Amino acid sequence: MAPDNIDKYFKHLREEYIDQFDEELEMEFGEFDEENTDHGGSQDHSSDFRKSYFRELYRVQTELVKLQDWVVETGHKLVVLFEGRDSAGKGGAIKRITQRLNPRICRVAALPAPNNRQRTQWYFQRYVEHLPAAGEIVLFDRSWYNRAGVEKVMGFCDDDEYEEFFRSVPEFEKMLVRSGIQIIKYWFSISDDEQEFRFDCRNHDPLKQWKLSPMDLESRIRWEEYTKAKEVMLEKTHIPEAKWWVVPGDDKKKARLNCINHLLSQVPYQHIEREPVELPERVYHDDYHRNPTPEEFFVPEKF
């Protein structure tokens, strides 16, 4: 590797680990001092860019809470599909969306491979049971579009099943929309070089090695087949009732913000006013007695 490429690689590697650190920092974002953030940003993940990113993330997550309140108040039913190449950033975007929401209202459906019984069912059947009731949001971390992607490329379905999927899915989604379910579909795109870099990082990171599956490795070999399958899928299933939206994912932070901003723009939510909650007075009884908890019940205080 040429010296210039080595420098570029290690700069990229440094940004990757900074991003991983930022993921942990985001979980404690309530301590972030918004007044000390700067506006603007830069093309790389400089200190100013990261401050701007956290400031904007806090803003859009605040809006997501408003959207959640509106969904509950109006009984809206929302489905968001996340598809894309492995390591393109679907999971990171989903994590930022759900981070501050009520998991009973906004939940994630990440279905495993179908079992033997499910393989004999109507193809959409196992997805239907995860659809939202009134006042719920469901985020599908991969969805029924598995048939148009991994199943097609890896040979897990035959040609007849593949063609039947494209005949059925537009009607299936139109039926869901007619029943009152809003569907938003995102495809996370990533470049060949960036995917290779992220796979390499996962391979050397003990905390992320579990993300690198044999199927991921096979996807590298079949990159061009996945490209063709994606192009056919977008062409045949981009319908007015449920459009596809492509999220460029080479920059994780920008991809997250762009996706969440767009999601907010697709739902006609409004701020729901809430009456301030007044805490009731603690009730005391003269005969109340609290029994001591045995010492062996306690977690050892090592910190």
Rank of each mutant, 00 (worst) to 15 (best):
L131Q: 06
E136K: 12
A255T: 08
C106F: 03
V246A: 01
E28K: 03
L111N: 06
P170Y: 03
T62D: 13
E83F: 08
L67T: 07
E281Y: 03
F165L: 08
E24Q: 09
Y53R: 07
M215D: 03
S213T: 15
M27S: 11
P170D: 06
P214K: 01
D44L: 15
E73C: 08
R117C: 00
I221S: 01
D33R: 05
K152N: 14
F140W: 07
H45T: 15
K174V: 02
K211D: 04
R85H: 09
E273Y: 02
K236R: 15
D193N: 07
T293E: 12
A229H: 09
I239A: 03
D86A: 07
D287L: 13
I181S: 01
E23V: 00
F165E: 13
S219Y: 01
K51M: 15
K230T: 03
S179D: 13
D158G: 05
T293N: 06
E231M: 11
F166G: 04
L57A: 07
W245P: 00
F21K: 05
F303H: 09
Q195F: 10
R85Y: 05
M233T: 12
A88F: 10
Q99V: 07
S265C: 02
R104V: 07
G89F: 12
R167F: 05
E73K: 15
S191A: 04
L101E: 11
D158W: 13
V79G: 04
I97Q: 11
A2T: 12
T237I: 12
E301A: 14
Q195M: 04
K8V: 09
I184T: 05
Q99K: 15
A110N: 09
I18N: 06
R14G: 00
K253A: 10
L81Q: 02
L264V: 01
N261P: 09
Q125C: 02
I239V: 13
S219F: 01
E31D: 08
K66M: 13
R107G: 03
I97W: 11
H12G: 00
Q118G: 06
M154H: 14
R96M: 14
P214I: 02
D141G: 10
V169T: 14
V150Y: 14
T120G: 07
S47N: 13
F165S: 06
Q68E: 15
D22R: 09
A88M: 10
E225D: 13
A134S: 14
V177S: 10
F188K: 05
V65L: 13
R126I: 06
T227N: 13
K252I: 03
Q43Y: 14
P3M: 06
L212F: 06
D159Q: 15
G249S: 06
E15R: 00
S87G: 06
P248Y: 06
R198N: 01
A113R: 15
P300C: 11
A255Q: 08
K253P: 04
Y53T: 14
Y186V: 12
G75S: 12
V247I: 15
K230A: 01
R198D: 02
Q209P: 01
T37L: 06
L57S: 07
K211S: 02
W223H: 06
V138E: 03
C259H: 05
K51F: 01
F10D: 05
D200Q: 12
D250I: 08
T237M: 12
V232Q: 10
Y123F: 14
R96L: 10
K66G: 08
N36M: 11
C259N: 08
G149R: 13
